[in-house]
Amino acid sequence: MLTANRDLLQPWTWPAAELEWQLIYALGKDSRGYLHRDTVRGIYDGSVFPKLAERTATLHSEA
């Protein structure tokens, strides 16, 4: 998807798109390493961030 949607006239923007998806994957993957569709949608509408904060707080309180 990233390769197909690249703008050939702006190659300096390619690393930013790759970095964005790597960050989304790192933040949103579950314990099995899957990135669910609802999580990606939540990244863009902002609804996933409270869930991530709760998950992080739970992990830190257990340690």
Rank of each mutant, 00 (worst) to 15 (best):
L2N: 11
L2E: 11
T3P: 00
A4F: 12
R6V: 05
D7Q: 03
D7K: 06
D7L: 09
L8Q: 13
L8I: 11
L8R: 10
L8G: 15
L9P: 00
L9S: 14
Q10T: 07
Q10P: 00
P11E: 06
P11C: 11
W12F: 10
P15T: 04
P15M: 04
P15W: 01
P15Y: 03
A16K: 04
A17W: 04
L19E: 07
E20N: 06
E20V: 07
Q22T: 07
Q22V: 06
Q22M: 07
Q22W: 05
L23R: 05
Y25C: 02
A26P: 01
A26D: 09
G28D: 03
D30R: 08
D30E: 06
R32V: 02
R32S: 12
R32W: 05
R32H: 10
L35P: 03
L35T: 05
H36T: 06
R37P: 00
R37W: 12
R37Y: 14
D38G: 15
D38E: 14
D38S: 09
D38N: 12
D38K: 10
T39K: 06
T39P: 02
V40I: 14
V40G: 01
R41L: 14
G42F: 04
I43P: 00
I43F: 15
Y44F: 15
D45G: 11
S47P: 03
S47R: 08
V48M: 13
F49Y: 15
F49E: 00
P50H: 10
R55I: 03
R55V: 03
R55E: 08
T56W: 06
A57W: 10
A57T: 12
L59W: 13
L59N: 13
S61F: 09
E62V: 13
E62I: 15
E62T: 13
A63G: 14
